[in-house]
Write a protein that binds this DNA or RNA. Structure first.
Lengths: 121, 121
DNA sequence: GCGCAAGTTTACGTTTGCGTAAAGGTAAGG
DNA sequence: CCTTACCTTTACGCAAACGTAAACTTGCGC
């Protein structure tokens, strides 16, 4: 039998990730997450929680919610079925290029910060 | 004698960095850059050009213009004079922490992209 | 000295990402 | 049942980062 899956309320997740419930609902409005409903209340699964983490990671990197949705959608491929592989590979490569550029930018800035600190003798 | 410094018009820089003149003027409104004026026209020096590059780098990393201004201001320290070193070191450390977190996020996402691509066999 | 591209200011418009009431529904404890 | 804490939807508000249009001025190029 399957192990009982953990469940979360909206305010639990909000507190855990230090954001507001409003934000989480907003992400749902933007179709970035869609928790189960028990009556009117939202119930979040561990899988939903992971999605939220992905969203916040994207935010920290400066992606828009629309971009984040594109990225997240990559995770929801129908497992075996590859639904336009060439198109997907293109998308993935785009993401990768952006991230590599960001990493370059970060390394550059880190170096600059080192230099600046050096000037503060 | 000093070598003649290169000069740029607003539209030259706009074209070079693939942004609009409007954006550049906006950065000026927000005190991120302040080119020389020759009459009413703006004249950009190589130093201004570097500042613009810093701005765009910050943007690619998702920083707000206000944050970018803070970062840029670090470059304009009165050379020898250290004006509240402890405070500055704190600021620099904050920036560094944020960048290191971002680099972690990036590395995480890159790994995920690799895995996703693996599933597309 | 005229034309025309490129510059200027001023100001209102737009999108994104929530904040912040307002007005109420729901569930568990006493 | 009643309070209390937490949840819900609806909707208007707002700051950031420009877009865009209007209405001018400037300065080559001929």
């Amino acid at each position: 039998m399957t192990v009982a899956e953990k469940e979360y309320t909206i305010s639990e997740l909000a507190k855990e990730f230090d954001i507001t419930s409003r934000s989480i609902r907003h992400y749902e409005d933007e179709n970035l997450i869609s928790p189960e409903r028990r009556g009117t209340h939202r119930i979040y699964s561990p899988r939903d929680r992971v999605r939220l983490q992905l969203i916040l990671r994207g935010k920290r990197l400066g992606f828009s919610l629309a971009q984040i949705r594109e990225i997240i959608d990559l995770y929801d491929l129908p497992e075996g079925k590859q639904k336009q592989t060439t198109l997907l590979i293109g998308l993935i490569q785009e993401r990768r290029d952006a991230l590599l550029q960001q990493r370059k930018d970060i390394n550059f800035m880190l170096k600059e910060l080192d230099m600046l600190e050096g000037k503060l003798d």
